[in-house]
Computed example of a mutant assay.
Amino acid sequence: TSYGDLGDVIKAILLDNEARQAPVLTAGDSYGKLREPVLRLTAMWRAFDAQPPAPDAYGEVKMTAGSSLIGALAQGPLQSPSVFNFYVPDYQPPGALADAGRYAPELEIVSESTTYSTGNTWYNFTARAYLGMSNPPVDRPLVNLAALTANATAPAAMVATINQRLLYGSMSPMLQATLTGMLINLNGASAAEKAWSALYLTMLSPDYATQR
C-alpha cells in the first residue's frame, strides 16, 4: 500500500471483512454501533421517499418539526462543535460497557432527556408528516407511505416492506411479531394510521437504533 494513495484507502474500506458480511444479529457486544439520531432520521426519509417542503424566500428548507434538531436529538446537520462530531471517540458509558472495556462514542449524547425527545421527534416526522394527510405541516419533509398502505390489509407484507427498506432484511423475529400483532390489533384503523404506526414503532426499536 502506498502512503497517501486514496485508491488504496477506498479499496481497504470496501474490501474489509465487516463491509462484505451480512449483518450478524447474534454477534454480541463487540460488533455494531448505535446509529446516530440524525442518521436514523435521514435513513427513514430515503427509504420512504420523503418530499421536502417548498423553500422559503431565502431558499431554505425547513426540517425542524417545530423545534431545533440540536435540542431534540442532541445533534443537527453542520452543527458539530468539533471535528470529533458530537462526542469524543474514546467515550465509555459508565457501567457494564466501561467495565468490559467497550467504547461507545455515540452513547455520549444519549440521556433520559434525549431518549424522550428523540421518541417525540420520530412521532413528529411520521404520524404528523406524511403525504396525503389533511393540513400537512410546512416545516418538515412528508414521508411517502404508499409502499406501506398498499399492504394495509396484509400485515406480514407491510412488515416485510419495512424490513427490506429500513432494516435491509435484518429485522429480528421478535420485532416482526410485534409489528404484525400491532397491525392486526389496528384492524379498524385507516391505511395511513397502520403505516405510520408501524414505521414509528420501528424507529423506536433497538433493531433500528443499532447499526450492524
Results as ranks from 00 to 15, higher is better:
Pro53Tyr: 04
Gln92Tyr: 15
Asp56Pro: 01
Thr202Met: 03
Leu73Asn: 03
Gly119Glu: 08
Gly71Asn: 11
Lys33Ala: 04
Asp99Met: 14
Leu15Val: 00
Asn85Ser: 06
Tyr168Gly: 06
Leu14Trp: 02
Val61Asn: 05
Arg128Trp: 08
Asn124Pro: 06
Gln75Asp: 01
Ile184Asn: 12
Ala198Pro: 00
Val9Asp: 02
Glu193Cys: 00
Asp5Ile: 02
Pro136His: 05
Ala189Asp: 14
Thr153Arg: 09
Tyr208Arg: 00
Leu39Phe: 08
Val88Gln: 12
Thr126Gln: 08
Met182Ala: 12
Ala150Lys: 13
Lys62Ala: 03
Asp99Glu: 14
Tyr31Arg: 15
Ser172Pro: 06
Gly188Pro: 01
Ala156Leu: 11
Gly101Pro: 05
Arg165His: 06
Ala100Glu: 04
Val83Cys: 06
Pro77Cys: 13
Tyr168Arg: 09
Ser117Gly: 07
Leu78Pro: 04
Gln211Thr: 03
Arg46Ala: 12
Asn185Gly: 08
Ser134Asp: 12
Pro55Glu: 14
Leu6Val: 01
Val159Gln: 05
Leu25Glu: 01
Glu60Arg: 12
Tyr58Lys: 13
Pro105Met: 15
Ala19Gln: 04
Asn185Cys: 04
Ala209Arg: 10
Leu41Phe: 09
Asp8Val: 00
Leu39Cys: 05
Lys62Ser: 03
Glu106Met: 13
Pro155Glu: 01
Pro81Ala: 08
Val61Asp: 06
Thr115Val: 02
Arg40Met: 11
Ala157Gln: 06
Gly169Cys: 10
Asp16Arg: 13
Glu193Val: 09
Arg128Leu: 13
Thr210Phe: 12
Val110Glu: 07
Gly59Phe: 13
Ser67Met: 05
Tyr3Ile: 02
Asp49Lys: 15
Pro137Met: 03
Ser172Gln: 10
Val138Pro: 07
Pro137Gly: 03
Phe84Val: 02
Pro52Arg: 11
Asp90Thr: 15
Arg165Thr: 02
Val83Ile: 11
Ser68Asp: 05
Met171Leu: 09
Gly7Pro: 00
Gln211Leu: 09
Tyr31Ile: 03
Ala98Met: 15
Leu39Gly: 04
Gly76Asn: 02
Met158Ile: 11
Ser205Trp: 04
Ala192Pro: 10
Leu167Phe: 06
Ala74Trp: 05
Thr202Phe: 01
Leu97Ala: 15
Pro173Phe: 10
Val138Gln: 14
Leu142Met: 07
Ser134Pro: 04
Asp5Pro: 00
Tyr116Leu: 13
Ala74Thr: 02
Met158His: 02
Ala96Cys: 10
Tyr123Phe: 12
Gly181Glu: 11
Gly169Lys: 09
Asp49Asn: 15
Ala152Thr: 09
Tyr87Asp: 00
Glu18Phe: 11
Val83Ser: 10
Arg165Phe: 01
Pro37Cys: 07
Asn163Glu: 07
Gln176Asp: 13
Tyr87Lys: 01
Ser80Pro: 00
Glu36Val: 01
Arg35Thr: 00
Gln51Gly: 06
Gly169Met: 07
Thr114Lys: 12
Ala72Trp: 02
Ala160Val: 07
Asp139Trp: 08
Asn120His: 13
Ala74Glu: 05
Glu60Asn: 10
Gln51His: 10
Leu183Ile: 01
Ser2Pro: 00
Val110Lys: 12
Arg140Met: 05
Glu108Met: 12
Gln75Gly: 04
Arg46Met: 13
Thr153Asn: 08
Ala177Phe: 12
Arg40Leu: 11
Ala57Ser: 06
Leu183Gly: 01
Ser205Ala: 11
Asp90Phe: 14
Ala47Trp: 09
